[in-house]
Amino acid sequence: MKRKLVFIVAVMLIFGLFAGTVMAEGTNKSKGEKADKFKIPSSVLDISQDNTYPNPTQDLPYLQPSKLTKELINSADVEIENPDLIRILNESAIQTSPLALGYRATIYLGQWPLNYESSETSTNWEYEKINTNYYDNRGGKTPFKIHYKQEMQKIVRGGLTAEIQDADEVKKMMLIEASKKTKLPLSFTTIIGGATKKDQVYNVPPKRLGYLYAYAPAVNEKGKVTYGEVYLVLKGSKKSIVVKNVTHQGIGAWIPVQDHVSYGFLVSETPR
């Protein structure tokens, strides 16, 4: 009986170790897959040093909440991430007195998009075609080298996939979340200047036409926005935020990757 008990315990320990190993491998694999999901492929090059149009650095509109703002945010039943609302709370000052017994006030701060919750983030490395370089080498006897040169200035714009209330504030929250997840330089507008070049060489064989296509990549962000009516409530020396009439709305957005170009090279016997 004792041997049987020892055997069962041993089997359970071995199974536990094996399960733990499998779980660890699964977790590591999951983390690896998540990291690879946003890894920049070799066909995408950084043109920040080559771009003839200097795009301004996109400063994420995140604000560090003040001590008072943190206290108010933590008192709310709904998570508050809207940087514009945080800025207003940061600029506010509330003086209360422990002797203010019976003092009571409710201040309506308006309806706000309070937070954005991401459900899916993906990349499209060929979001918008911005340029084509080509060479006809059908009469040539040796390979001809071509490289990327932007023929005309191109403005690439992203945006929300549907109309939504307080769109600018929603875009800020989506930009923060997408940048955090992908670690990519994102902006709703990016410009590729005319005559921007890259030294990467592509060979067009004899008796062939070569096409070098350039694309602006972008991130597709999907999730939901939480709206609510925000009230500042003062009771004696206590202060808090109360959120009423909470609603949710699904939304998506395309956000271009700033100063990056994806290249596709095609060789053909006939014109395309």
Rank of each mutant, 00 (worst) to 15 (best):
residue 49 Q to E: 15
residue 39 K to Q: 12
residue 89 L to I: 11
residue 34 K to P: 02
residue 117 E to W: 00
residue 66 S to M: 09
residue 57 T to L: 11
residue 69 T to P: 03
residue 95 Q to V: 06
residue 116 Y to D: 00
residue 122 S to G: 05
residue 80 I to W: 02
residue 44 V to G: 15
residue 48 S to W: 06
residue 36 D to T: 11
residue 100 A to T: 02
residue 50 D to T: 08
residue 108 Y to I: 03
residue 92 S to Y: 14
residue 41 P to T: 07
residue 33 E to L: 14
residue 69 T to C: 13
residue 50 D to K: 04
residue 60 L to Y: 09
residue 104 R to A: 11
residue 121 T to S: 01
residue 37 K to S: 07
residue 70 K to H: 08
residue 99 L to V: 10
residue 81 E to R: 09
residue 78 V to W: 06
residue 93 A to T: 08
residue 121 T to V: 06
residue 89 L to E: 01
residue 63 L to M: 12
residue 73 I to V: 14
residue 114 L to H: 06
residue 99 L to Y: 08
residue 115 N to S: 12
residue 96 T to A: 02
residue 109 L to S: 03
residue 52 T to C: 12
residue 36 D to L: 14
residue 53 Y to C: 07
residue 97 S to Q: 00
residue 118 S to N: 02
residue 68 L to A: 14
residue 59 D to Y: 04
residue 47 I to T: 08
residue 94 I to W: 15
residue 103 Y to V: 02
residue 97 S to P: 01
residue 106 T to N: 11
residue 32 G to Y: 11
residue 103 Y to W: 14
residue 76 A to M: 03
residue 41 P to W: 07
residue 115 N to T: 05
residue 62 Y to V: 14
residue 64 Q to P: 07
residue 36 D to W: 08
residue 62 Y to E: 11
residue 36 D to Q: 13
residue 69 T to G: 08
residue 109 L to H: 05
residue 51 N to W: 11
residue 120 E to Y: 12
residue 120 E to V: 05
residue 86 I to V: 15
residue 110 G to W: 03
residue 91 E to T: 11
residue 58 Q to D: 15
residue 64 Q to A: 13
residue 95 Q to D: 02
residue 59 D to P: 03
residue 53 Y to L: 05
residue 100 A to I: 04
residue 74 N to I: 01
residue 76 A to K: 12
residue 42 S to V: 09
residue 86 I to D: 00
residue 87 R to N: 04
residue 120 E to I: 05
residue 58 Q to N: 13
residue 39 K to C: 07
residue 56 P to Y: 09
residue 87 R to F: 09
residue 70 K to F: 10
residue 94 I to C: 06
residue 106 T to G: 09
residue 41 P to G: 09
residue 84 D to A: 14
residue 108 Y to S: 06
residue 89 L to H: 05
residue 65 P to V: 12
residue 105 A to V: 12
residue 53 Y to D: 09
residue 49 Q to S: 15
residue 43 S to Y: 00
residue 87 R to K: 14
residue 48 S to Y: 13
residue 35 A to W: 07
residue 106 T to M: 06
residue 62 Y to G: 06
residue 113 P to K: 02
residue 83 P to L: 04
residue 61 P to F: 14
residue 77 D to F: 05
residue 82 N to C: 12
residue 109 L to I: 02
residue 60 L to I: 11
residue 26 G to D: 06
residue 52 T to I: 04
residue 38 F to C: 04
residue 37 K to T: 04
residue 98 P to I: 10
residue 81 E to P: 07
residue 96 T to L: 10
residue 37 K to F: 09
residue 89 L to D: 00
residue 93 A to L: 11
residue 47 I to Q: 11
residue 86 I to G: 00
residue 81 E to S: 13
residue 92 S to P: 10
residue 58 Q to H: 09
residue 120 E to C: 02
residue 65 P to T: 11
residue 78 V to M: 07
residue 45 L to P: 04
residue 108 Y to C: 05
residue 73 I to H: 14
residue 103 Y to E: 00
residue 108 Y to L: 05
residue 75 S to R: 10
residue 118 S to R: 01
residue 73 I to L: 15
residue 70 K to M: 09
residue 109 L to K: 00
residue 76 A to Y: 01
residue 68 L to G: 10
residue 71 E to K: 04
residue 71 E to N: 05
residue 39 K to T: 07
residue 83 P to D: 02
residue 119 S to D: 01
residue 34 K to R: 10
residue 53 Y to M: 04
residue 96 T to R: 00
residue 63 L to D: 13
